[in-house]
């Protein structure tokens, strides 16, 4: 079940990233291509088999997991950048790129790196499962490390959420509103990932579902805005509505 979710998420991300290649080559909103490519790479790194292969190449000390954290940070940062710009959420934009945003990013990055170095990280395993069961100290560190890794995406999501809710209720084209709704849903999913440490271990699969739901919501939401634009260009200049008579 989880395998299906993982591979289908990877497929969706990969397809969208590939579909963006032509416009990226033409220089149209390259950031979007980078976002999709980074997300695809992040999903790839979260699946056991590819993770193992990549981590072995990097020395087998779970450096790939550290890489994964920063790939996610980069992807979510660019998502935040483009979305706040596009939806005209200037206050949210400042919260991401201003001093507060940079301080949050810096502190969390530092925490992730320090916690990683404190652990005995030998032995490749996606999600650092085999590291966590070595002893109590490593188990605790993995827990903190995971929490730090989720903190930055959660910060960006919370910053984005009000703007997305506002966009859902505004008078922009329906497809874009659906996209904003999906982005809001993804933001809520990521925000709720903060509660993972208090979830009982029996609900482990819930964590997977929430993570991949979040990624799918973001990718499909962003792709939908693109589709809406292509759609409107194809149907020609906007028709005047009744009040414009």
């Amino acid at each position: 079940m989880i395998e299906i979710l993982q591979w289908s998420t990877l497929t969706v991300c990969g397809l969208v990233a590939t579909a963006r290649v032509p416009s990226a080559l033409k220089g149209m909103n390259r950031t979007l291509f980078y976002i999709f490519a980074l997300m695809t790479f992040a999903i790839l790194l979260s699946i056991q088999a590819p993770y193992f292969a990549i981590d072995q190449a990097l020395g087998g000390v779970n450096a790939a997991n550290l890489l994964l954290r920063f790939v996610i940070f980069a992807a979510i940062f660019f998502v935040g950048l483009r979305v706040t710009r596009g939806f005209g959420a200037d206050d949210a934009y400042r919260l991401l790129t201003g001093q507060v945003g940079m301080a949050v990013l810096g502190l969390i990055s530092l925490a992730v790196i320090v916690l990683f170095l404190l652990m005995d990280t030998a032995g490749s395993s996606a999600g650092m499962g085999s590291v966590a069961i070595k002893d109590a100290r490593n188990g605790l560190l993995v827990e903190y490390y995971g929490a730090a890794g989720r903190a930055y995406p959660a910060y960006v999501s919370l910053v984005l959420l009000p703007a997305m809710v506002r966009a859902c209720r505004s008078n922009i084209p329906l497809l874009v509103r659906v996209a904003a709704f999906l982005l809001a849903l993804g933001a809520i999913a990521i925000g709720s990932s903060l509660s993972f440490p208090v979830l009982p271990p029996a609900l482990g699969s819930v964590e997977f579902v929430i993570n991949y739901t979040a990624v799918l919501c973001f990718v499909i939401g962003l792709a939908l805005i693109w589709v809406a634009k292509l759609w409107s260009e194809r149907s020609g200049p906007r028709q005047k509505t009744s009040t414009a008579k």
Partner: peptide
């Protein structure tokens, strides 16, 4: 009309940044 133009500008901005 002003409202419509405003919505149109917002949509254009979204497409400029995310399209």
């Amino acid at each position: 009309l002003r409202r419509q133009e405003h919505d149109h500008e917002k949509t254009e901005k979204i497409w400029e940044n995310l399209g």
